[in-house]
Computed example of a mutant assay.
Amino acid sequence: MAFEAVIFDFGGVFTTSPVQNFAEFERKHGLPEKFIGDVIKTNIHDNAWARFERAQMSLEDFDEAFAEETKTAGFEIRGATLIDLLKLHFNHEMIAALARVKAAGYKTGCITNNLPKIDSKGMLAPGESRDVVEQIHANFDHIIESSKAGVRKPEPRIYEMMCEALCVEPEVCIFLDDLGVNLKPARAMGMTTIKVPIGDVGPAVEELDRLLFPT
């Protein structure tokens, strides 16, 4: 396969995954494993989290709506509490991989589900440099943010938008994401997908190198 472009998710790929923070919160409060994730996946295209990522509601409205959804599921978590859990650390191995991909001449893109007024810099853990985000962004030819585009993964349109921006067909693209639900539509379009394991990006970097730089 002659690949032309590599498209990356941001959180969970270049940074640790929020899922790791969610799991810690769940353990601390005696909640079922993946409680938060299950709420976020329920009514996946029209729940509070989805609408907030598309900037269809304010933080205040999200705070109330997410509290109601989680209360219905058995344990109330305010939306503002969820936002406070988005404190992420960099995965420098993946940052270096992006630099290699860019240096080799491949087109690069980033599709990120993010929140209005809370960009990638706003999700960093204390002590992490915001300048590193700028360094990462400099290696992308195009970035699509859900809160600005009004569309989010896993809606197929957001992947189409990236292909249009990069002037490529899906079949010549590799897409990396830490969530399987976001990989499925990309794969259905014809992209080669790589799942980034939560907690260890190494296997994904190795697979990417194998596809782009075979020995």
Rank of each mutant, 00 (worst) to 15 (best):
A2K: 14
F3P: 05
P18C: 08
Q20V: 11
E24Q: 15
E24R: 14
F25T: 06
K28I: 09
L31C: 05
I36F: 01
I36S: 00
T42A: 14
I44Y: 11
N47Y: 07
S58E: 09
S58R: 04
D61N: 00
K71P: 00
I77G: 03
G79S: 03
A80T: 11
D84H: 14
L85P: 12
H89M: 04
N91W: 03
I95R: 05
A96W: 02
R100E: 15
R100L: 10
V101Y: 04
K102L: 05
K107V: 01
C110T: 10
K117A: 14
D119W: 08
D119G: 11
L124S: 01
E128I: 09
D131H: 00
V132M: 02
V133G: 01
E134N: 12
I144G: 00
S146T: 02
S147T: 04
K148Y: 00
P156R: 12
R157G: 01
V168Y: 03
V168S: 04
E169I: 07
P170D: 11
E171G: 13
I174R: 04
I174S: 05
L176W: 05
L176I: 11
G180V: 13
G180E: 14
L183M: 10
A186Q: 10
T193I: 14
I198Y: 11
G199N: 12
E206R: 14
R210K: 15
R210G: 02
F213Y: 10
T215P: 15
